[in-house]
């Protein structure tokens, strides 16, 4: 059983790697959006450092939202969704595997490149570490919540910007606590409370979201 799930995750990752644009475009989008801010606000390091948490987090959030539109898209076209709905493996588990592989291929690259962007915005070491930690704790939540919305509109042909509108309000707590943690880091305040809250949100979402996503898929597959 466990081995089977690993095979599924492995194949999902393989599929994404074989279509390089699908994981490269969110990554480039992330980098470009972050680079727009110094150009828009001027190169003053102090200002940039002050708003860096907001910039990086909003950019990451948007990049992930864009990638999430595709999490079930091909599965519908290929008729693969019917297959997993009718599989005897519990749908919640399959959905969970999909989200994990999506996180590995679409969020992990963002997290890996974020220290570099931190350098561009003059973050110090503590801030860099905080950034990475908040991204590690926060991005799974973004993926899990986004998957619910993506599943609901899975068969809608003209999705446009529907997914961001649906899901963005739900991202607010993660955004607030992550950026607050980074601001606290820049003020040399203790951070454990922020990480605890983010971790709690992550656990809470981990429990509920896959279940809701599988319900959403069952609804969304019939249009």
């Amino acid at each position: 059983m466990f081995h089977n799930l690993l095979v599924l995750i492995h194949h999902d990752i393989l599929i994404t790697l074989r279509q390089a644009y699908s994981w490269l475009t969110p990554l480039l989008f992330f980098v470009l959006v972050v680079c727009l801010f110094p150009l828009a606000l001027g190169p003053d390091t102090e200002t940039l450092n002050k708003i860096a948490p907001g910039i990086i987090w909003v950019a990451a959030l948007l990049a992930i939202l864009m990638s999430l539109g595709n999490i079930f898209r091909n599965d519908v076209h290929e008729g693969y969704l019917d297959l997993i709905l009718l599989s005897s493996t519990p749908l919640t588990l399959l959905v969970f595997c999909k989200v994990i592989s999506h996180w590995i291929t679409h969020c992990l690259p963002l997290i890996l490149i974020s220290p570099l962007l931190g350098v561009l915005l003059n973050l110090n070491n503590t801030e860099e570490l905080t950034l990475i930690t908040t991204l590690l704790l926060g991005t799974p939540v973004l993926c899990l919540l986004g998957a619910i919305g993506s599943a609901l509109i899975v068969s809608v042909r003209t999705q446009g910007l529907l997914l961001p509108i649906l899901i963005m309000p739900l991202y607010i707590p993660v955004l607030i606590f992550s950026t607050s943690a980074m601001m606290a880091a820049s003020l040399h305040q203790p951070l454990s409370a922020y990480f605890a809250i983010l971790g709690a949100i992550a656990l809470f979402t981990l429990v509920f979201a896959p279940f809701l996503t599988s319900a959403a898929l069952r609804i969304g597959v019939n249009q």
């Binding site: 619910i148 919305g149 609901l152 509109i153 809608v156 003209t158 999705q159 529907l162 649906l166 809701l212 319900a215 959403a216 609804i219 969304g220 019939n222 249009q223």
Partner: peptide, 16 residues
């Protein structure tokens, strides 16, 4: 507003 099918629209809205 984007879901054409009545039943799907009801249930998707409910889940949301």
């Amino acid at each position: 507003s984007v879901i054409p099918n009545q039943q799907t629209r009801d249930r998707a809205g409910a889940l949301m």
